[in-house]
Design a protein around this nucleic acid. Structure first.
Length: 304
DNA sequence: CACTTGACCTGTCCGC
DNA sequence: TGCGGACAGGTCAAGT
């Protein structure tokens, strides 16, 4: 479930790993994962140099020196994993070891074995033989090659809300944007990428718990001061998650194939049946806005 | 406009 | 042991 912190972690990793590398080869075995015309790939991807990594909401952008960019969305189960030449051979040797370490549950351990594997959809090979794998078990994610200047005109990019961690995204703007959707449930609004970019199920649940707001509460029934608290808590949760390298529930790994450790700090997500750390009541899992939703029934009373 | 449902997919888990 | 079904949850399209 890559959300803003996970995509940001991948972006920072790739910043250190692939800038300056020259694309030498690209293969894909699933058209929808990389639905590009072969001519564009031949002309603007092959031989191009990676210049810069960017993130917008949950989308990752790799700018090339050909005036084209790769736009990547990991959706539910996407991974972007870089493998240097020697490292790949090492991993092949230690495949069995990996399962033992994974079983022990160390949060920063590698989750991927030898690549490519059966979830690999697109493989980029650089001139120095290092490789970048786009893995995606459920095939919801995608990679697109586009002229860089056209990215901002993509429909979903135009509609995307502001970046919550940018300095100019203030408490006032957050409250204003939420209140435009006064008749909607607050969790549905947080998950709406056109309101605020990058929030998904994990951080919606965590920030609503931190702000003591029930996720089904209609926005108009949440007092203004509570919306302000929600803003502060959302920012805190997102920053903390980036510091932890994101959340790994099942699939997510960073650019080096390592898991994120935020879920060790999560206070409600995947903690159903466990005690609320504030009041001791039992965390429950319900369905709100069509999603699995974790709440403390005592701390998060519904206003509606 | 708000909300729900289905579609896109695969892997895992649960009950029979 | 196998098998059907529910579930995981990001996003869009279609229907109420």
């Amino acid at each position: 479930m890559p959300e803003l912190p996970e995509v940001e972690t991948v972006k920072r990793g790739l910043d250190q790993l692939i800038v300056g590398k020259i694309v030498a080869d690209v293969t894909s075995d699933w058209v929808k994962s990389f639905p590009n015309a072969q001519t564009d790939v031949n002309q603007f991807l092959m031989g191009a140099t990676v210049q810069k990594l960017r993130r917008r909401g949950k989308a990752l952008i790799i700018d090339l020196n050909s005036k084209y960019s790769l736009v990547i969305h990991l959706k539910m189960t996407g991974q972007l994993v870089f493998v240097g030449q020697q490292k790949n051979e090492q991993k092949a040797k230690s495949k069995k070891q990996k399962e033992v370490r994974f079983g022990a549950g160390h949060p920063t351990d590698s989750l991927v074995g030898e690549l490519p594997d059966k979830s690999t959809r697109v493989t980029f090979t650089f001139k120095d033989k290092s490789r970048l794998f786009f893995n995606d078990q459920r095939k919801f994610g995608w990679v697109r090659l586009l002229p860089t200047i056209e990215i901002e005109n993509l429909d979903f990019m135009k509609k995307l809300g502001p970046e919550p961690l940018e300095n100019d995204f203030t408490n006032t703007k957050f409250v204003q944007r939420l209140q435009r959707r006064k008749n909607s449930g607050i969790k549905a609004v947080l998950l709406d990428q056109t309101v605020v970019a990058g929030v998904g199920n994990i951080y919606a649940d965590e920030s609503l718990y931190a702000a003591k707001i029930h996720p089904a509460t209609l926005v108009k029934d949440v007092p203004r001061n509570e919306l302000k608290v929600l803003f502060k808590e959302l920012i805190k949760v997102l920053r903390r998650a980036i510091e932890s390298g994101g959340s790994t529930d099942k699939n997510y790994v960073d650019a080096e194939g390592k898991k994120g450790s935020y879920l060790t700090f999560a206070r409600v997500f995947r903690r159903e049946g466990k005690a609320c750390e504030r009041c001791g009541d039992i965390i429950i899992k319900t369905k709100v806005a069509g999603r699995g939703t974790h709440t403390c029934p005592t701390c998060q009373r519904s206003h509606s």
